[in-house]
């Protein structure tokens, strides 16, 4: 019964996400919806490793940036089709994750040490992307040529001039499909033997090992899945904005953005990153619309708010919005279906 109500809930949520842009005709609000889903996917990538696996990465930009750079470089420098480039982008990022994971987990880096080494790798790639000008164009960044031919819209994976429906909604449904895939993978993780082992490693790695779980392999699996999902965000970013540069790719902003949504929404829950993303984007828009105007559009307001919300959630709602909903639901139904 519980299983069935969950399925119905998810179906309703997905239908809502599928039709909601059709009622919105302003480009600004479609952008808003796209960015909400984008951050939900970015957060889900981080959530697999940190929420389910207990490995807190502070350098997830590493996987985002690598995906984005491969997508841009293969198209611009080697003339690849974006549809081909994206597979290289995702596998390249997974390869980087496997290397970082191999080194960190083989040498037993846990907790804060793991956070520090991911940060160091992201920083190293930031420096490399700035310095290796022959590959990355350095600080100028790489620009993908804008396609203005509607016939080529699908082939170039660019919807800016793709006719009435696609030019408006193409990128929204792209990120919507990515979201479904990312969430389906996470749902599989949650139910699979692998996911159960991952959670066991999070709760107590030594105990998990004593039970015969190969903690190294489980963590490797988690970091690779996590990086793959995060890399699709990089691919999406390049196709939508047709531009990537070192700061956007490997700067700390993306690493931070990736962890806000799952923590606020609920660490280690399937719904958490989406709920968290909707919440922070909603709050962000609300502040822009209200006090943001009064303060003359000064920068920093939204991040002050997000940082404060992060601390408050960690202090008072450690299970996030999902936890709040669950206990609210339990109270409503008299504790039968928590």
């Amino acid at each position: 019964m519980k299983e069935f109500s969950h399925l119905v809930g998810w179906a309703l949520l997905l239908i809502a996400l599928a039709v909601v842009p059709l009622f919105v005709h302003s480009a600004r609000w479609i952008d808003f919806l796209e960015m909400t889903l984008f951050v939900a996917v970015l957060g889900q990538g981080w959530n697999i490793l940190a929420g389910y696996g207990g490995q807190y990465s502070f350098g997830h930009a590493l996987f985002f940036g690598t995906g984005a750079y491969i997508q841009a470089i293969l198209q611009v420098k080697l003339g690849f089709s974006p549809w081909v480039a994206m597979w290289f982008a995702v596998s390249g990022s997974v390869l980087v994750a496997a290397s970082v994971g191999y080194l960190s987990f083989r040498y037993g880096l846990r907790g804060s040490y793991f956070a520090l080494i991911t940060l160091a790798f992201a920083e190293a790639f930031l420096v490399l992307s700035r310095s290796l000008k022959s590959i990355t164009e350095g600080g100028n960044g790489i620009q993908v040529a804008l396609n203005q031919d509607p016939e080529q819209a699908i082939a170039t994976f660019q919807f800016n001039f793709a006719g009435p429906f696609l030019s408006e909604y193409g990128f929204y449904y792209t990120i919507f499909i990515i979201l479904i895939v990312a969430f389906a993978i996470t749902a599989w993780v949650e139910r699979s033997r692998f996911g159960a082992q991952l959670v066991a490693v999070r709760e107590n790695e030594d105990a998990a090992k004593a039970l015969g779980i190969n903690a190294f392999r489980v963590k490797m699996g988690a970091i690779c899945l996590s990086a793959g999902i995060t890399a699709t965000c990089g691919v999406y970013y390049v196709q939508k904005f047709l531009f990537i540069e070192p700061g956007i790719a490997y700067g700390p902003a993306k690493s931070v953005e990736a962890l806000f949504a799952p923590i606020i929404g609920g660490l280690g829950t399937l719904l958490g990153p989406l709920l968290g993303s909707i919440f922070i984007h909603g709050v962000g828009e609300l502040t822009k619309a209200t006090i943001g105007q009064a303060l003359g559009g000064r920068p920093g307001v939204d991040l002050i708010l997000f940082g404060t919300i992060l601390i408050l959630v960690l202090a008072f709602v450690p299970r996030g919005l999902v936890g709040l909903l669950q206990s609210g639901w339990a109270r409503l139904t008299g504790g039968r279906d928590a």
Binding site: G54, Y56, F58, G111, S112, A115, V256, L259, I263, L295, R298, P299, G300, V301, L303, I304, F306, G307, T308, L310, I311, L314, A315, P318
Partner: peptide, 25 residues
């Protein structure tokens, strides 16, 4: 932080974000 190392890490990160953006603001 409820005494958990990972949470302390995140709390200090949150503080850093607030202080940096408050200064920017």
């Amino acid at each position: 932080s409820h005494g958990k190392d990972e949470i302390i890490l995140l709390v200090t990160l949150g503080i850093a974000i607030v202080i940096e953006n408050l200064s920017l603001f």
